Amino acid sequence: MTKFLLSVHVLAAILAIGPITVAASMFPRYVRPRAAEGDSPEGNGPEGENARTAALLHRVCRGYTVVGVAVPAFGVATGAQLGVLADAWLLASVMLTAAAAALLLLAILPGQQRLLARLTDGDTDSETATGTGIGTVEARRSAAARLAMITGIFNLLWAVVVVLMIVRPGSTTGA
């Protein structure tokens, strides 16, 4: 039973978390404003194509987030079977996984949604004219950069979790 649980846990991590990390990492590139002016986000120009690609990447992140719940569920089940639920490396992994999940649910997905809304609403420079913002191009560029940074932290957290799962400090297996 332990081998089955571990196999499902690892497969779920690869098949669910992998696509989220890739799609989330690619997303900011497709919402950054282009230097060329006159491209409509809804049109067939580079901005329109980027908007469609960004929307697809956001759907991938949202969809795989639902499937990603299986990763910690099977991880806890595997840890219980192995009797390692109180080990420091597993507790650290659980904390890092919770932090990554919080970043995904509270920062990455909402940030993607906000940027998509700006991108598909046709983002003009009316904010600058009314004095309500620093300019939509600059605001979108800044928001995309922040999202890229948060996504990088999310990916780093998962990398550390993977290392902890493989190395398992204090393990007697010699791994």
Rank of each mutant, 00 (worst) to 15 (best):
A129T: 08
Q112G: 12
G68K: 04
E138P: 00
Y30W: 15
T130N: 05
G122K: 05
S7Q: 04
E42R: 12
A107D: 00
G122H: 05
A159C: 02
T173I: 13
E47Y: 11
V22F: 14
S171Y: 11
M165A: 13
P110Y: 06
P19D: 13
G43D: 05
L82R: 09
G75I: 09
A102P: 08
R29C: 01
Q112T: 11
D121V: 02
E49R: 15
V31P: 03
R141E: 05
R29T: 03
T21L: 13
A159V: 12
L57R: 06
V76D: 07
L157A: 10
H9V: 13
A159H: 01
D121M: 09
L156P: 06
P19V: 12
A148C: 01
L104E: 09
L82S: 09
G174A: 14
Y64D: 11
V84P: 01
T132Y: 08
V71R: 10
L164E: 00
E138W: 09
A23G: 04
A54K: 10
R141N: 03
T173V: 13
G48F: 04
V160L: 08
M149Q: 14
A73F: 08
L147M: 08
S126W: 14
F27E: 00
L109I: 15
L103S: 08
P33D: 00
Q81A: 15
A36W: 01
V10M: 06
L91E: 10
E42N: 13
V167K: 09
S171A: 15
N155K: 09
R29A: 07
Q112A: 01
T172P: 01
V67L: 11
T128R: 10
W89N: 12
L147C: 01
P169G: 07
R34V: 10
A143N: 02
D121H: 10
L6M: 13
V8I: 12
D123C: 03
M95H: 02
P46A: 15
G152E: 08
T2F: 12
V31C: 04
G135W: 10
R118T: 04
V76N: 09
G170R: 13
D121N: 09
A129R: 10
M149E: 13
R146I: 01
L147P: 04
S40V: 12
L157R: 00
Q112L: 02
G131F: 05
L105S: 03
V84H: 05
G152W: 08
L106A: 14
G48I: 01
L147Q: 07
A35K: 09
G43F: 05
F4A: 11
G38H: 04
G48R: 08
G152P: 03
T120H: 06
A86M: 11
T2M: 09
Q81R: 15
F74M: 15
I134P: 06
A100F: 06
G18F: 02
G75R: 07
G38W: 00
G43Q: 01
E47C: 06
F74W: 14
T21H: 05
I108L: 00
